[in-house]
Each structure stands twice: as C-alpha cells, then as structure tokens.
C-alpha cells in the first residue's frame, strides 16, 4: 500500500479527485473552490493599508486559509512519507528541450539549477522567482481567479468569463514558455 502511494498518480485518478473538490466544498460549507483569493485574505489580514480592496471581513473567509494551510501540510506529509523515488515522468522531448536550456537537475519536482537561494541574486533567478511570482499574484487577482477559481470552478458552473480567462491563462503561458523562458535560460 505504502509502495503504491509512493508512485506518481496518473492523470485519470488525479483529475477526477481534484474535480471532486468542487462539490465537496459546496456540500460541506457552501464554499467555492478558488485558491488565489487566499493571497487577498493574507493582504487583508496583514497589510490592508486602508486600501478599499482589502477592507472586508476577511475573518469570514478564513476557511480558505485553512484550506491552503492544508495543501502545505499535505505536501510536507507526502514528502516525508510518500516521496516518489523516481524523477518526474516528463516526456523525452521535454527533457531534451530542457537540457538544451542548460537545465541539468531532473531529480526533483523543480529544477534546482534555478530554485536555490543563490540563484535569487542572479538576473535569471530574479525574473523566474520574483517577477514570475509577482505576476502570479497580480494577474490572478486582476483576472478574478486562477486555475482553480476560473478554470475548474468557473468552467464547472459554465461561466463564459471563466472560459475567456482560462484561454488567456493558456495563451499567456504558451507564448512565454515558448519564446521567453528559453531565452532566459539560454542567455541570462
């Protein structure tokens, strides 16, 4: 059993389980699946700075912070008890492509070539870690949701604006991943 849980999960099990989060949240408390709002609640709780966007009763939304706290703990438990000894099963073509970008470490979930504290102080690390992070927070709030709030919850509820948002997430990602990320890795 433990051995089975250590293995990577195929898409046809993981996808439906993630999809089930939608009805479970609705049934256990009339809550709508959406993770990026947690960052708004953190702003509202910690640095509202008299900005109207952060002046609301964040305590009513505290369930969302418990939920993301759970995601963190779940990842810790997985790393401690069910760590997959194998590298991420990406396709050969992806691996060849990434090697061409001078990425050498494929052993973990993220490439340590870039995800380590020393890289933070390089231009490459700054763009990937800090600029990238900033855009995730700014963009999701500007769009009013992220992959969970728009792509999963919004599409489940047949919302056209969520479809538009999801297409824009994909369009932005495809352009940047194909034309900008390779440049950053090869030349910076």
């Amino acid at each position: 059993m433990i051995e089975l849980l250590k293995q990577a999960m195929p898409w046809y099990i993981a996808g439906p389980l993630i999809g089930l989060t939608v009805p479970i949240l609705l049934l256990i408390g009339n809550k709508h699946f959406g993770i990026s709002s947690s960052m708004r609640h953190i702003c509202a709780a910690c640095v509202p700075a008299n900005i109207s966007f952060f002046k609301y009763q964040w305590k009513k939304e505290v369930w969302n912070l418990f939920f993301v706290g759970g995601i963190f703990i779940g990842a810790v438990l997985t790393a401690v008890f069910f760590k997959n000894p194998n590298p991420v099963a990406i396709s050969e073509s992806t691996k060849t492509m990434l090697e061409g970008w001078n990425i050498t470490d494929f052993s973990g979930l993220l490439p340590t070539d870039i995800y380590n504290i020393n890289q933070l102080f390089t231009l490459k690390g700054f763009i990937i870690i800090i600029v990238g992070g900033f855009l995730v927070g700014f963009g999701t709030r500007y769009a009013g949701g992220c992959t969970s709030g728009h792509a999963i919850m919004g599409l489940s509820n047949l919302q056209l604006p969520s479809l538009i948002a999801t297409c824009c997430f994909m369009a932005g990602g495809i352009i940047v991943s194909n034309f900008i990320v390779p440049f950053i890795f090869k030349y910076l």
């Binding site: 993770i35 993220l110 990937i128 855009l135 927070g137 700014f138 932005g172 900008i180």
Partner: peptide, 18 residues
Amino acid sequence: FGGLLFGTGWALTGACPG
C-alpha cells in the same frame, strides 16, 4: 489582461497559486 499576466507568471514560475 489579468489572464495574460497570470499566464506569463505561470510559465515563469511553473506554478499557479495552489
């Protein structure tokens, strides 16, 4: 606009908020 910006961040960091 937000969607495109988030897409950019998603491709750079390889992560959405969750």
